[in-house]
Design a protein around this nucleic acid. Sequence first.
DNA 1: CTGCATCCGACCGGATACTG
DNA 2: CAGTATCCGGTCGGATGCAG
Lengths: 125, 125
Amino acid sequence: MEKCTDFEEPFTAQRCSQSLSSVEDALYVIGGKWKLKIIIALQEHGNIRFNELQRIVAGISARVLSNELKDLELNGFVKRIVHAEQTPVVVEYISTDYSKTLKTVIMSLSEWGRTHKRNIREDVF
Amino acid sequence: MEKCTDFEEPFTAQRCSQSLSSVEDALYVIGGKWKLKIIIALQEHGNIRFNELQRIVAGISARVLSNELKDLELNGFVKRIVHAEQTPVVVEYISTDYSKTLKTVIMSLSEWGRTHKRNIREDVF
DNA sequence: CTGCATCCGACCGGATACTG
DNA sequence: CAGTATCCGGTCGGATGCAG
């Protein structure tokens, strides 16, 4: 409840004390091992197909990727586009406008990750 | 590789295309169900003891909290302080300066979470 | 190609009991 | 209080096979 002096404006003490709850809400949707990685991969490439996506998100299995994509689609982060006119069927995934609202989150996370890696290399904890 | 126009300065296209890797590095350390929540709880309160922490991070079991704290200590996010002069032993946990570098990450995540919750309430996806 | 169904082992983590 | 040890059920997820 105290200790909010670490955070400067425009984040008030009141907002600060609610960050746990809000972060929980965020992690509920984009938490987990793969969600953010998939969202990023989809943002960096335009339309992208299942197998290509699996190649980019290194280490993920088809089954897990499939489930994650369903989740992400339900939550409005991903659009699934089926090109039915062809055989075999071509399916493309594309990130939605709503996933763009994660821009700041992804920015700060990648910034921190980059800095952290540098720290690790220099100091050894 | 393209599509980086969504991101404005000072984040160049080159940095953008590396965000997947950097975010992976970040998630490797602060990813998972509990890590960030614990870090936030420790930042919001000053020194804090094990059971109190378990109460604040709702839903976590003693075993998991214990393991997570070891992890966080190894990675320099948490300091463990033992007050040996008393019996029973009093142990306090406190967040380190390094965990303050996560400020921006936590900010953006909680901001997003707050907005997302509002969106969910209004539109129903 | 794009997945889903099934099998099955690994491991995550809850409950409980116990120690210092 | 601050954890640890053990047990054990549930889930996660890899491998494989199959379908559209």
